[in-house]
């Protein structure tokens, strides 16, 4: 564990909780892409199957359980409890265009052709693009609430910090995972445009264009 990892994990946790609280407090999921949240739930589910096979630490287990729990809670709030506020018309990204190629890539490019390994690889690839429906939705409506931009900022920060974590681990622990690194770079790049807007608009709600 290094400082980049720890702050990255906490930033990720903050993003997840910000989104849950935003929906819960406002009793509305307007402006939130349910599709992105379903993708994240799939990401956590397929990656954390190792909860059943290997124990790393209490920290590791707790965080994984919290991530999975929050992901499903978010999906529940969007599609069940507050579904009347869900803006399905604007959440029109075709997720099959992500899931199918990502699934194919996971089968083709992985470290080991085994069931759990392919699911892990799939989750890594899928996470790198899971935010696209959300970014697409914002670009379509042309606006995002301030709290939604904080959510995206924390999520992007988590990814950027993981890149530093991997540089750290390469130098001090001598290992690296090319699949995770390439996917992580792709994911971070997707946030660059957003980061720029977030910083220049001082985190205020903004009009967004591609």
């Amino acid at each position: 564990m290094n400082i980049f990892r720890l702050i990255g994990d906490l930033s990720h946790l903050a993003a997840i909780i910000i989104l849950l609280l935003k929906i819960w407090k406002s009793r509305s999921c307007a402006g939130i892409s349910g599709k992105s949240q379903i993708l994240f739930a799939i990401v956590f589910t397929t990656r954390y199957l190792d909860l059943l096979t290997s124990f790393i630490s209490l920290y590791n287990t707790c965080m994984k359980v919290i991530y999975i729990g929050c992901a499903y809670a978010t999906v529940y709030l969007i599609y069940m409890k507050f579904r009347a506020t869900y803006d399905g018309n604007h959440d029109s990204f075709r997720v099959e265009f992500l899931v199918v190629p990502v699934g194919g890539l996971a089968v083709l490019i992985n470290h080991d052709f085994s069931f759990l390994e392919i699911l892990w690889t799939f989750s890594i690839y899928l996470e790198s693009v899971a935010i696209l429906p959300q970014l697409f939705m914002i670009s379509k409506t042309g606006e995002a609430e301030t709290i939604t931009t904080h959510y995206l900022f924390c999520l992007g920060l988590y990814r950027a910090l993981y890149l530093f974590n991997w540089i750290w681990r390469f130098y001090f622990e001598g290992f690296f995972d090319m699949i995770a690194i390439v996917a992580g770079v792709v994911q971070t790049v997707l946030y660059c445009d957003f980061f720029y807007l977030y910083v220049t608009k001082d985190g205020k709600g903004y009009r967004f264009s591609i």
Partner: peptide, 10 residues
């Protein structure tokens, strides 16, 4: 080894 990163990172 690649293993540690697999299960350790979130």
């Amino acid at each position: 080894s690649l293993e540690p990163m697999r299960h350790d990172e979130l």
